[in-house]
Design a protein around this nucleic acid. Structure first.
Lengths: 334, 334
DNA sequence: TTGAAAGCGCTAACAC
DNA sequence: GTGTTAGCGCTTTCAA
């Protein structure tokens, strides 16, 4: 097979100038081109199987028409849905979404000249390496910080309130909270939702009912033990857990100290993953609008690239309570 | 701040020709450059914070120095480790790894001119859209097909043998297998390992002990029910499950029919994920060398890009049995 | 050991 | 409505 066709080849076949082909391919209908010519060009493109050279275009226009998304941890399933939303939106706007691993704090793969901007998901403990965000237009996803970068977040407080209110409605009056790391703003918002729900219901809060944990099974396990080893008369009858992985640890802790879920202890987790329906017991969760989070983040980044100024945004779509088997009214003697 | 520095600017500052700067930056030590000149150039680069323009380089050299990886499903945690290995290898070879979602069968995001080649992970049921692989040098990851594309796989049969032998060693004589979809070659290899282990031990096999399932919780659940509803005297006392998600379904099925794990039923799953240690009971698994799979796949792709011919490869690193709580000797009456 | 020069393939003024 | 032209920023012969 011959060499890859260039714009020039298409032009020759269609018997027009290369610039005409370029104009046709740009799709800009304001550029006046005779319909017959347009068709001839399109036919030539099809016949040759021509595709524009990305590098040449990028060099000329100084834009790549790609955006990048930094995912610090491919094991975090929540990113799957965020990426889904972002990718879909980017695609429909004519951009391609490229996902790169690696941490923003350290050796981020070099995306210079490969993407026009960055969607930044960060591990909670990260503080970005200086300079990373001066080099790219960027939007922070699911985190809000004062780094002068616009952000998109979901309504964590509403999610937490929803979960806690359900526990209150079930009759629980001693509700614990396994919070995320305190250096993550999502953790603070979830904690706030917990506080609001309990206060609005006029239900007692105690400092020892709130424990901090990493967002993983180990963290949930250790922190839950702290809660469950409290004397029986002050021990929480329900726990609102900051995420699913920590919930797995909490459930293990309950088994370890001989408490049955949901009879002796109810658990609600923030974020929903499909497999939790198959746990024993199936986990009650609050599902957050993560696909939309990705969509909005992509939208915001494209606005930034278009030179528009944008603000921080919180997605108002309501979290959704998914009741499964890990929740029940408190035991009668409670 | 001024405009972005170009090669020309560096050259001017270092008082050399642009071509000299290019040669210095290429890092090719065979190019003889006076050490003093080299240093002057490097200093100028540092002072200006110069970075080569990727698009211009790509246009000139016709290579992007990036490779892409297609991940059909970001929810499949096994890809996390494969990507980890591939990314690390690519980086150390001077390439960047870009991950793209989307299915190979349908509208793959357009990576033309963005990557030099593709690492292809595919959903098991996929048959790639015609043309996808004629357009890119590609390596198939964790799957081997006769599409004229080199592949890298792990030793699924060995993994299955390892898991099944452990069950045999525990004394099980009625061992079932929840196999993956039969259109996936990994499923066939795992099934083969199961067959080999049982045959080598001289243990009976029955057709009804092997059921096919999708690689998810639903599939595992449905198929396990088929197994567990066999009459008690022919019902398997142990099941080797083709993957972790299906195992969750199988565990739910056991609870549903009132069988205790591991007392009445042992379960071993292929592939290991960190959270399974927190299930009830913790799941016994066979851990496969997925990081190395990614590493080798990247290595193979770079060889292809370098014009070398490559073969299909199976990674020989031994799978690793991780014994947890889902396995025990069969009940005495077994 | 260094410099000069010729493009890579495309787009966007500008001219006609 | 279409053609002409001048680069985008870099690498790589080739010549000195």
């Amino acid at each position: 097979l011959a060499t890859k066709p260039r714009l020039q080849d298409v032009a020759a076949l269609a018997e027009v100038d290369a610039s005409v082909v370029s104009r046709v391919l740009s799709g800009d209908r304001r550029l006046s081109i005779r319909e017959e010519t347009r068709q001839r060009v399109l036919d030539a493109v099809a016949e040759l199987g021509y595709r524009r050279n990305t590098a040449a275009r990028a060099l000329k226009t100084a834009r790549t028409m790609a955006i990048g998304m930094i995912v610090p941890d491919f094991e975090n399933l929540n990113y799957a849905r965020i990426v889904e939303g972002a990718e879909h939106h980017a695609l429909s706007a004519g951009y391609v979404l490229l996902v790169a691993g690696g941490s923003v704090t350290d050796k981020l793969p070099d995306l210079h000249g490969r993407v026009d901007g960055l969607l930044v998901g960060m591990a909670t403990s990260d503080t970005p390496r200086r300079g990373v965000f001066e080099e790219f237009p960027a939007v922070l996803v699911n985190r809000r910080e004062s780094w002068g970068m616009p952000s998109v977040t979901v309504d964590d407080a509403a999610g937490a309130r929803l979960g806690c209110r359900y526990l209150l409605d079930l009759g629980h009056r001693r509700i614990g909270h396994i919070a995320g790391p305190s250096n993550a703003d999502v953790s603070r918002r979830r904690h706030l939702g917990y506080v609001e729900a309990l206060d609005q219901a006029g239900v007692e809060r105690r400092p020892e009912w709130v424990v901090e944990a990493t967002f993983d099974e180990v963290g949930g396990h250790v922190s839950a033990l702290d809660l469950l080893r409290l004397p029986a008369d002050v021990r929480p009858t329900a726990i609102f857990v900051s995420n699913v992985r920590a919930s797995l640890g909490a459930m293990a802790a309950a088994r370890q100290v001989g408490l049955a879920i949901p009879k002796d202890l109810s658990i609600v987790a923030l974020h929903d993953l499909s497999f939790v329906a198959y746990l024993d017991p199936p986990l009650t969760t609050v599902r957050m609008p993560l696909v939309e989070l990705g969509r909005r983040a992509s939208d915001k980044l494209l606005k930034v690239l278009a030179g528009r100024t944008v603000d921080d945004e919180m997605i108002l779509t309501s979290p959704e309570l998914i009741v499964r088997g890990s929740t029940a009214p408190p035991a009668a003697h409670g």
